[in-house]
Design a protein around this nucleic acid. Structure first.
Lengths: 219, 219
DNA sequence: ATACCCGCCAAACACTTGTGCTGTCAAGCC
DNA sequence: GGCTTGACAGCACAAGTGTTTGGCGGGTAT
């Protein structure tokens, strides 16, 4: 038998879920079963109830029994009734070679914050994500320009080729580069043809985070 | 006669309003009249209805007639009162030359939505902002890569050099290019050294929107 | 074939919930 | 004292809304 995976939902269930999301964000309260039925041209309320039960079981929505208009979208999306989950602290600026305050040095709760799309930050680990404003064009070939905001997830290790914020202990400087581990040393590669890579002993580098997203405003 | 100022409400109304606020933030949906009645030990539903009418008239809450649990607190609650202001419809895909559904052709309320940082979308004009996913690398030199999401503000005109979504009437195609008005014709310039600009008569081009932001996920 | 499960349909049912109507009562005003 | 008004009470009704039951057709497994 072909079992549907616990995370996949049928086309009709997708429609219903989207309708609920949009309804809530538009009206501020949940649609009734009959609202859904009429909007999606479903011929019976029981079909809606049936699919709602599945969506609940699979964790896409939450409901309370017998409560009118008590559907709450859960996954993805804001849902969550107005709590702003997607604001991360903007901890400072990162340049080709300039200093960067350690994330620990800045109180994240007092820092400026930027709102980020939830797709860019795995919400379940949102506490580990922070933002930095980029100065300079050392990563221009990686499509990161001066003034862009990069989102980083805090992590101490990196795979070759990943873009990271790397701290050079000797220089007490932090830089945004592509990371390559090469035996005893580490190559920090700018994404700019006019700039040369930096080679440093592996024990002189601390990864401070990996770039998980880029936001650019052209206004 | 001492008229109560339009902004002051009685103790009972204050209680009701607070109860609604707390209920919504806790459960994600509004209380029913009887919920309020029981919680505040009010002896009749009509009293709740009566005070709800006053709260509505004075602008503290919003309701829809006959809708169960349709109360929405309005005041207070900085920002958005539960409504997510920063979601824009993702209307489709844009390529170097491929077709794009007209924004009007897609029901924005049924489209997928992306949450965008408020900085990227002038919130006061949010209704005019939409998102498109970029396919191809025709704008690679403008630091826009395949898979990026571009935010566009709907507008019919553009300054030279601005990046726009342009519709070519003859080809019924939409493309993401830099816009240059050159006399009787328009030059649509890709940001990719391997691609050539397109020259079209000015009356064959309709601007569909201007790029105001870029979002890229590297996860 | 037969049995079974899934997704759907139709209709009835029963609970939930907003509304309307009729009073009561105290306070202010002529 | 009469009259009006604001706030509240009690109650019944009707509309809104979730739930349930029985049935149907098309697949899939036995």
């Amino acid at each position: 038998m072909r079992r549907s995976s616990p995370d996949t939902i049928s086309a009709r269930q997708t429609d219903i879920f989207h309708y609920i999301e949009n309804f809530v964000s538009q009206y501020g309260y949940s649609p009734s079963i009959r609202d859904i039925q009429n909007a999606l041209n479903i011929s019976s309320t029981s079909v809606v109830a049936y699919n709602l039960r599945i969506l609940t079981a699979k964790g896409w929505i939450e409901r309370e029994d017998k409560i009118s208009r008590g559907i709450r979208p859960k996954r993805n999306r804001n849902g969550n009734g107005g709590i702003d989950l997607f604001r991360v602290p903007l901890l400072g600026t990162i340049t080709a070679g300039g200093p960067l305050p350690e994330p620990e040095e800045v109180d994240p709760s007092s820092a400026d914050k930027v709102t980020v799309p939830p797709d860019l930050a795995d919400v379940s680990r949102l506490g580990d994500v922070y933002a930095l404003k980029v100065r300079g064009q050392s990563m221009i070939d990686a499509l990161i320009d001066d003034g862009d905001i990069v989102l980083l997830r805090f992590q101490n290790t990196a795979e070759n080729g990943q873009m990271v914020a790397a701290r050079l202990l000797d220089d007490n400087a932090v830089t945004l580069k592509k990371f390559y581990h090469e035996g005893e040393r580490v190559r920090l590669q700018p994404a700019n043809q006019t700039m040369s890579p930096i080679y440093v002993p592996a024990d002189n580098v601390v990864i401070q985070g990996r770039v998980v997203g880029v936001i650019r405003s052209l206004i």
